[in-house]
Every structure is written in structure tokens, then in C-alpha cells.
Simulated scan of single mutants.
Amino acid sequence: MNLNNSNILITGAARGLGKAMALHLAEKGANVGLVDLAGEALDLAVEECKALGVNAVALPTNVASEQDVEASITKAKEALGPLNGLVNNAGILKDGMLVKAKDGQVTGKLALSQWQSVIDVNLTGVFLCGREVAASMIESGSKGAIINIASISRAGNFGQTNYSAAKAGVVAMATTWAKELARYGIRGAAIAPGMIETEMTLSMKPEARAKMNQGIPAGRMGDPKEIAETVAFIFENDYFNGRVLELDGGLRI
């Protein structure tokens, strides 16, 4: 797939990984739809993409809302034209132990609200965006790919029952979609990042960051640009389908 003049949507695109993906795809000539909650950060990210000479549109969306997602896909088609792909990147964290106990007495449990909020955004949001973009691509006859951003936590991680379950689910969806949508020229794939430099990790104390880096065989956290380059690789390689790329510097959970 040639990214130049293609039309790609990225969720969670106002900052962090999503913004890095949007900018990198724009540098390659792709027109981009930036899906995120409304705010100044979203508008600024759109302007940065436009400055690279491509068409870009802000799509304020709650990805967990079916009505919001349907409306945003319609707006994206009107602003950009037939869609060629999607990066499902939006996600949240609500970490917590399944059960906390002391001296045989339960002192706390993972709240249903913590479970549900993560599942709503990280899993249901991926389903809704993937479904609507796939339907749009089939109707327009356009080919391309849907890429789900997972995590190496999909294998299970301490204190992340909700997040790990959701990230395992988005990988399962990507491989399922690869099988179902191939007949329409639509590929499905996933990327499972490890520890990546984001606003959250950059705000950590230097000693905490150093300790974290020591646990990564590569000796450092990944750069958001490295994830963005992997996204572009999957879009551009028409034979990459139904697989998950782990990008973690050798770290395994």
C-alpha cells in the first residue's frame, strides 16, 4: 500500500504515541483523521499535520460510544474521502490488584468500575472503530489495513487484570479481522509495544527511569517514532497480515 495520498484514521491521536503516528504518516504523504476527545491538544496536533502539506481533520470522539464513532467515520469520509486504514491506539489505564489481602483478610478488590472503564475504551472502542472503518472501506472498495495497538501486557501483567485482558482481546480481534476481511483487500494486524517514552515516563524521577531501563535488554525505553515507523511498515507491506509485532527492546513480561 502506498501511503502517499491515502486516508488514515488514528485514535488517541492528540498526544503521545497516537500523535507520533499521525505525524509520521503525514510525513509520508498520508491524509490523516485524528480521533480523540475534544480539546486544544487535538486541534494543535491537527495543525502540525497540516503543516506537513497533507489534509488533516480533528474528529472529537468518545471511542466507547457507538453514536460518536459512527458520526466521526461519516465526518472523516466527508473531509478526507474513501478511507484506507485505521490505527486503533486509544487506551486508558486503571490499574489495580484483583484482590488485596493482609493476614488472610481481604482489604480491597478491583472495582467493577475500574474493569469496565478500561474494557469500554481499550476493547469496545477498538471493536467499534474497527467495525465502522471496515464497513466504510468495503462500501468504497478501498484496500488497506486496520492496526490495533496492543501491549506486551497482553500476556498478563501484575496489577493489570483489566488492561491485560483488553490488550489480549485486541490482538485476537486483529487476527480474526485478518481472516474475515482479506477477501475485501483489508488486512488486520497488531503491534505490542513494551516500555515507551511518553509524557508519563518522562515525568518519572531519574532514578526510577534508570531502574526501569536496566530491566530492558536494549538498555532504554522505546521512542514513539519507532512505533510510528512500525505502523508505516505494516501499512506499506501488503503481505503482513494477521500477526502481532512485539516491539519491546527484548523485554518480556
Rank of each mutant, 00 (worst) to 15 (best):
V46F: 07
V63K: 11
Y239T: 01
L110E: 09
L128E: 12
L112P: 00
K102C: 02
P193D: 07
D43Y: 04
E236F: 08
G250K: 13
S65Y: 03
A26D: 02
A58I: 00
M204P: 12
A218L: 15
V54R: 05
G219V: 07
A192G: 05
A178E: 10
Y184I: 00
R209W: 10
A38Y: 04
F233G: 09
K19V: 12
G108K: 06
A76R: 04
E207D: 13
L37Y: 06
L37S: 00
W177S: 03
E226R: 12
E139H: 11
Y163E: 07
T61I: 07
R154E: 09
N5T: 02
I227T: 01
G242I: 13
K19W: 11
K109F: 08
L247Y: 12
T176A: 13
D43L: 10
V171S: 00
C49D: 05
K225A: 09
G249R: 10
K19I: 09
F235M: 03
D43W: 04
A174D: 00
E229G: 14
G169I: 13
W177T: 02
V244I: 14
I92D: 11
T176W: 11
V69S: 05
L86V: 00
V87I: 12
Q67M: 00
A145R: 00
A168K: 10
K94P: 04
A145G: 05
R220L: 00
T107G: 13
N2A: 01
G91F: 10
A41N: 15
A51G: 07
V54K: 08
D120M: 11
